[in-house]
Design a binder for these strands. Structure first.
Lengths: 336, 336
DNA sequence: ACTCGTACCACAAACGTTTTCATACTCCCG
DNA sequence: CGGGAGTATGAAAACGTTTGTGGTACGAGT
């Protein structure tokens, strides 16, 4: 770093003075190089380099009216389902010069709203991942800055989600083929859009095949939630359970085993998400895999498009085909 | 939300005009209320409320010279060890009005440096979690903005870490008591400070008790790393292994089981970190628990102190007593 | 030689705050 | 009744950029 730094950061004026030009010329060399003479450009660039000049972000933001950062709000960083999502979004924006603010709502709707409101001041755009807040709230926030919803679809706000149908179709077919006729769905948070999605799809597919589906819960979408669910599952007299997500599935399995119930011997368990852990436990979990990185990239791309393209028009594109879910059969499902 | 918003955000001038005062008075009402007349204050506040006025962050940053945001750089968000850390830091700063930028280095030293450099422009301070970069790099960055190191100790830069000794002491005692005399350490990333810490402590304690310690690796600190390690473990002819972290421990256990080796029947496994997953697998993992939330709070507090208190003096305080690690005995360790 | 065009650059305004300094008013005391 | 001490407010500078407007110099065309 061949910069001769005297503690204080170099301003544009300093490099202008050093190069013997005006600040505007420096600005232009940096932002519209083609507008300045080659020789001047060289000199300015050299001086900027020498002083280690970095434009002041605040000043830029002030005049340009944008902060070059975006917000990302997720329900729970500790939930392994969101890690690849966060990584995906971050990776995408890294190349674009945008920084991303991350916030964690602790699965709480009120916190979510507070955080989103706070983001309005600091970010140019916002990605709401699996938001819990009401559609009205979402619209109110979307009115203040570009928002895209991930893992939740909306007609009024650009949004992206995976297509839950194929995976659930496959799961129900699988369970039906194994001979199960009475199953349970362990539901997730009541205000979660994806919970409603999953429940409905499951309900429809089961009905089609004459499988009786009892809905249990809601349970908190963590390991401990599944733990709680297990006892209610045993009371419900079912031979297979679909869990809201893998964490819950893992929880049930663990508790079931603790109570001496064999999985899949006596009860089959199907998870949702296919988090890394799902393949690591023994027995590994049968689960519906979700193309999280694709959703993440999609969400990021949509937001970026709204950020650079001025037109707020263009209605949300339909879920792309690569966003389909699919069943991954491992070892927690077996014949009745 | 009784704001009458006409799309464009209200400026301080707008509320000044509405309240019939000068912008300076509005600014004072908001920042030094005691300096303005009670009646004026009431009126200004009301007008601000009515317009939904929110000070423009960029403008504030520009004049105040601070951005009210801090950076947090971690090696891997997907690693469950870091989730509570991130949450802890975020929760701490949430109350202080600072926002936190999160970045993920993908366990890569070069990426880490790049990200840290990028943070310099946008944040007032920086928390480097388990940094891989060289001490020189760290100092170079610390020269540009307040930095605190977490999970790595330094004499020149404020830093905080847990005390690894008690946990390792307990683990070695435990393993020794179970009759093991030849063990392996599955090392983590070569450039990781905590890896060196753990290896050294382990080495010393084992030597004291006449336990032979063979060091294997390095392995990448994930599940798959442990998978790879398992085969080398079998070749090393040991009866117990200490893994760099829980993910690796889980990986070995899984692969060992896959090769028909019973844990803890034939080989005992000790992890490190006590991530949530450690207690969920079967058998649950014996591991050295790390007080991550305490470290997170400590790091955040140290950074905040440097941010508000002007004096950069005060040398880093020694690790507080509550930051001790401790062994959690579960079911992956047993007698030889 | 004069004009016109082009290429390059400087000047200055603007972005929305905070804060210093000055001013006007009020009140109290001598 | 005049002056000094507060108290409350306004005017203006400053923070570091970007960008529109205008001016200068130079070459070419008539």
């Amino acid at each position: 770093m061949g910069a001769s730094e005297d503690g204080a950061r170099a301003t544009i004026r300093a490099v202008a003075a050093l190069a013997g030009v005006s600040p505007s010329t420096v600005s232009r060399t940096l932002n519209n190089p083609e507008l300045v003479n080659a020789e001047t450009r060289r000199r300015v660039l050299e001086c900027a380099e020498r002083l280690g000049y970095q434009p002041n972000r605040a000043a830029q933001s002030l005049v340009l009216g944008r902060t070059m950062s975006v917000g990302l709000i997720v329900p729970d960083i500790a939930n392994p389902f969101f890690a690849p999502f966060i990584k995906g979004v971050e990776a995408y924006f890294r190349q674009t010069g945008y920084a991303v603010f991350l916030a964690d709502t602790d699965e709480d709707g009120a916190t979510e709203v507070r955080l989103a409101e706070a983001m309005v001041e600091r970010a140019d755009g916002l990605i709401l991942c699996s938001p819990r807040m009401s559609g009205m709230r979402v619209r109110s926030i979307a009115a203040k800055l570009p928002v895209v919803l991930a893992h939740r679809l909306s007609r009024t706000v650009p949004s992206i989600s995976m297509d839950v149908q194929p995976g659930i179709e496959q799961a129900v077919t699988h369970i039906h083929a194994l001979g199960h006729r009475r199953c349970a769905y362990l539901s997730g948070p009541r205000d979660s859009w994806s919970n409603r999605q999953r429940r409905k799809a499951l309900h429809d597919r089961c009905a089609e095949r004459g499988i009786e589906l009892v809905v249990l819960g809601p349970y908190e979408p963590r390991f401990t939630g599944g733990y709680r669910a297990a006892d209610e599952v045993l009371a419900a007299d079912v031979t297979a359970v679909f869990a809201y997500n893998d964490l819950v599935a893992l929880g049930v399995r663990s508790r079931l085993e603790g109570r001496g119930v064999r999985v899949p011997g006596e009860i089959s368990v199907v998870g949702f998400d296919d988090i890394p852990m799902a393949s690591m436990t023994s027995p590994p979990l049968t689960t519906v895999a979700v193309p999280v990185p694709a959703v993440a990239r999609g969400a990021a791309a949509m937001l970026l498009a709204r950020l650079v393209g001025g037109a707020p028009g263009a209605p949300p594109p339909p879920p792309a085909p690569e966003l389909a879910t699919r069943l991954v059969i491992r070892s927690t499902t077996g014949p009745t």
